[in-house]
Simulated scan of single mutants.
Amino acid sequence: MDRPDATFTLAYMVFALCFVFTPNEFRSAGLTVQHMFSEWLGSEDISFIHHHIRRTTLTVLFHCFLPLGYYIGMCFAVQEQNLVYIHHASQGWQIYFGLSLAIQLLSCALAFYWSRRGWANHPICRALNTHALPRSSWRAVASSINTEFRRIDKFASGSTSARVIVTDTWVMKVTTYSLHVALHQDCHLTVTDSKHHSLSPELNTPVQIVTITVASINPAVKPFDIRLKSTEYVELQEKLHAPIRNATNVVIHLTMSELFLETFKSYVRLNEVHRCPSGQELEPCIGCMQVNANVKLVRLCQGDGEGECQQCYCRPMWCLTCMGKWFASRQDQQQPETWLSSRVPCPTCRAKFCILDVCPIP
């Protein structure tokens, strides 16, 4: 890519997307609003509400600056177009500069409006005001939340841009631009959806993400969704005062072994199918005795004499579920990221096999 404008455009687009959605690499490098302005934002542990009031305001300002930042960068990337002198630029660039400058000025005006009357106009403060008692204000609610957030027994889960926090009194969701707040005693939590991922972004382990809708009986509080790993579901239940309804009968896998079993099944279904010899009848699985055996161990992952896997000569005696449970039970429970690539002995003859050697029987 020889054109400097195209190179800069592509690089800036990647940077802007990463700055807005903040992948782990950007967080590790400290390229976040929360890290770069940590001194002005103050400590989240000491003043949780005021920290997020300032954070959301700065985030809006910087995200709105990105279009104007692109124009400023192009002034240096393609100096021959004289973009520094706006009256010399083409009409298209003039329109772009005007729009990006207008966006920036509007964000500054919005930030100034939010800061008036001691930040009382900020959306977070207005949301807290709906929970204030008569003759009280959002500051009393903020003080209560700040106090409870400092306690070590709170529930916290999720990334910086979508964090779930549950204290003794409050259910909160921290997002990039806002903070959702609901009282325990006023809200109903309902499991509405779940998604199973074979591999999580952080670790080489399966993960199930459960979506829970938080709806308050207070009409001024809008419903919001929280998402967390299924393995954190029990911890969340223990922190709440009311049960979580499962209206759609979502199956929640509470342990790593249950999550791994679903991943094990999905990988085995992709393996080569084993055709039994004609006339051979499949007997019930000796593990559960509920269904017929439907998997056969066949060494397919490597050639003869290579690797640790061995050929199993046992006839089909196990179903897919029981084989998956056996595979999970032989793993190091402290290192779930190694489960998919590990090898275990056959439950009958002890010949070592891996997931690639488990062949489904049609």
Rank of each mutant, 00 (worst) to 15 (best):
R330S: 05
W318E: 09
G305M: 14
D332I: 01
A328M: 08
R330E: 11
E306R: 09
E337T: 12
W318L: 12
R330Y: 06
D304H: 13
A328G: 05
L300I: 00
L320P: 01
C314A: 06
C322D: 13
D332G: 02
D332C: 07
C309Y: 10
C319T: 10
C309K: 07
W318P: 00
G305V: 13
T338Y: 07
F327W: 10
C312W: 10
C301L: 09
R330M: 15
C322K: 14
Q302C: 12
Q311S: 15
Q333D: 03
K325M: 04
C322Q: 11
S329A: 02
G303V: 06
K325R: 08
P336Q: 10
E306L: 09
L300R: 15
C301P: 01
E337G: 01
C319A: 08
C312K: 15
G303Q: 08
Q331A: 09
G307D: 03
Q311G: 14
G324M: 10
Q310W: 04
Q335K: 09
T338C: 06
T338L: 06
C309M: 07
C322I: 15
K325S: 04
P316E: 00
Q335Y: 11
G303R: 01
C322M: 11
Y313M: 15
W318V: 05
W326V: 01
G303Y: 01
S329Y: 00
C314E: 03
Q334G: 14
Q333A: 04
G324A: 08
R330N: 06
T321Q: 05
G305N: 10
G324H: 02
P336Y: 15
Q331K: 01
S329H: 01
Q310F: 01
Q331F: 01
G303K: 10
E308N: 14
M323L: 12
Q302I: 11
D304S: 11
M323A: 11
Q310E: 03
C319W: 06
L320W: 06
F327Q: 04
G324Y: 07
T338N: 12
T321W: 07
Q311P: 06
Q335M: 14
Q310H: 00
E337Q: 02
T338V: 03
Q333S: 04
Q302D: 08
Q311W: 12
Y313R: 14
C322E: 14
G307I: 10
G303E: 04
L320T: 07
C319N: 03
M317S: 13
C309E: 09
Q310L: 00
Q311T: 15
E337K: 08
G307E: 08
C301M: 12
C309V: 08
R315M: 13
Q311V: 15
Q302L: 09
G324E: 05
C322Y: 05
Q334H: 13
G305H: 12
G305Q: 14
P336A: 11
M317D: 10
G303W: 02
E308P: 00
Q334S: 13
A328E: 09
Q311L: 15
M317Q: 14
T338Q: 13
Q302H: 07
E308R: 05
R315S: 13
Y313D: 15
R315G: 08
D304Y: 05
M323V: 07
G307S: 03
C309L: 06
W326Y: 11
Q333W: 06
C319L: 02
S329P: 00
C309T: 13
K325P: 00
E337F: 08
C312P: 05
Q331I: 02
F327D: 01
Q334I: 13
Y313C: 05
P336E: 10
D332T: 06
T338H: 04
Q331W: 02
C309W: 04
M323E: 10
D332A: 07
E308M: 04
Y313A: 14
